[in-house]
Design a protein around this nucleic acid. Structure first.
Lengths: 191, 191, 191, 191
DNA sequence: GATGAATGAGTGTTCATTCAT
DNA sequence: CATGAATGAACACTCATTCAT
């Protein structure tokens, strides 16, 4: 691995386990076996480092979500696919999932949230786009898209949180995914 | 309000909006209109200040939860009551709800989580106790209590998050509480 | 001397001999026998430290200049008094005189000049006020006040620079002061 | 322009407007559109860069001054020529004039002054040589050569400073040069 | 000639905390 | 109870410089 990659990896590890605000640049570069100017050479700032981490993982997440468009009318299948995207993220990149889950709920005026809020906005927009497509088929839900997005994100993230074991691995079966999608749909249509 | 109360109030406000790690003791005492030794006189440390905040709000939350015991067999009613407890907390003390919701998901090895983890453990234990009582009546759920607790906390907190408006107020009707309890039970019995 | 005074004194010494930009906060506090937070307690920043130094010496300089008003019509006497003010400053506070003489000519967009430019503006304004009063008696000079101020400051400062010996002391006799005033007046009326 | 020339030009611009100590090597190479090793290839160090700038401009200045020798006895003419040399420098190379005017007054123990002091010494020596030749004709001034040099440099530089407009250009007429020379001589003979 | 990558030492500033009064 | 003053350690970041290519 190149220095750049090592820094990214170690930063993700430490941000995820000790928090962004609670982690000093010094600790990251020490763990990565480089010096501070090296980190600044690649990322410009501590903020830039966090941003790079998000850039990498979110760009993939977003493109995965947008691949569910155009909506084909099969709501069960679409919801299962959406759930699967997040579960795969949590399975393959548990550290990032945990970091993102943490920062999503961090104080709005806090330094960390200001840095990453744009990414969550993109995510929200992408899912919103999906739900807007869906509500064309289920017209009784029109106007409630924004709420559906929040509810969906809470449900799926909460479910994965509860499934995350101490060693940061996730094991979720296909059946569970199916149940989760059904549970969400139940919530939707009970509105 | 006494100095002690002002400090607690301002600390809660700032911790909730800017984060525990991102807030300096200086800022808190400035906002409270006192000096640092005054804060240290009352709370001993920044950590002690956070602990005091949790002490106040969690003690009430825990006693409210434990009042649902002994379990009377009416699962719908019990779940509604449990939901109501959290919604009232979010309604009456949105700043604390937001802070607690944030720190609940903070990195396990982080400074902040170490301070407050015991409170979340107490909460988990209390709800767990309730579910253990419940599973005596619904024996197919025995052994899954821990998961139920996590799932419940995620669901209710997620729902409130989605209902929290910009100005940190919450408006949730009785019917919504009923639906929420039902939705959770559906999730439970689909397991 | 209090810590605050020691810091001010050492800062003046070092700024004057090694430059503002070339001096680290660490060096100042080391020489003053305190730690960095002590300096920040009193002055807020390195910039605030420089500002404090200027505040002290410039307030006196400005009041001395303004005492020459109202202009009584004796131009020779007034010019001699003005020269005397600067020579006394250089005699009593050679370190500050040297620092001020240096920063007066420092790059306009430089950090240091931005901090102290307001003081030089005040000085310029005060002397300008004096010259405006004078040109009421010598109407042929009306409109040239701004140039007279610059020329005067250059002349007097240049003269003192040339008189400053290695050990930063100044020895200028009354006759020299008289000659300097005359030389300046010659320049004025040759315009 | 070659890279070397571009670097020299940009360095002069930035040193003149933001100061030597206040300017980082990074900024210079960025503005010049090259990388740091390129600058180090040509100049060896930041210090060498400043030295090169002085080398170029001072060598010309010194040769101009020494061309006034041998002294022909016409003191008015010689003084006018000397004044003209500096005014031409200020007119043709205002950035360098400003930089040199600034660093001439910079703290003696400061990093910047140590680098360029030898140039000012050469300048002082050259003018001193001229005045020594002059005092052979005006024996009452013998022994005061050093003072004359300082006084001269202050006067002429001060005059130009006062004439420097915001856009760093200088407009000084032949008559003004004549007056300036006369004013200086008046000062000399009043000693 | 010119570059990307790397560094040791330092920058100004803030951290949570303590002490004498 | 409350304060002004003080601190050691850490903060994010930049400095001038070098090396292999």
């Amino acid at each position: 691995m190149s220095n750049k990659e090592v820094i990214l990896q170690k930063a993700l590890e430490i941000f995820a386990t000790e928090g962004y605000m609670g982690t000093g640049v010094q600790k990251i570069v020490d763990e990565a076996g480089v010096t501070k100017p090296t980190m600044y050479h690649y990322f410009g700032s501590k903020e830039g480092l966090l941003r790079s981490i998000y850039e990498i993982h979110f760009s993939k997440l977003l493109s995965n979500i947008l691949e569910l468009l155009p909506y084909n009318g099969d709501i069960i299948k679409t919801m299962e696919d959406l759930v699967t995207i997040y579960i795969k993220l949590a399975t393959n990149e548990p550290l990032f999932f945990w970091l993102a889950d943490h920062l999503r709920r961090s104080p709005r005026k806090g330094e960390a949230y200001k840095i990453v809020s744009t990414y969550y906005k993109s995510e929200h927009d992408a899912i919103n786009e999906l739900f807007v497509a869906i509500t064309q088929y289920h017209t009784n839900l029109i106007g409630k898209e924004a709420f559906l997005v929040s509810a969906y994100l809470s449900l799926i993230n909460g479910y994965i949180e509860a499934s995350l074991s101490e060693d940061m691995t996730v094991q979720i079966t296909k059946e569970e995914i199916h149940l989760l999608a059904k549970q969400f749909l139940y919530g939707i249509f009970s509105l």
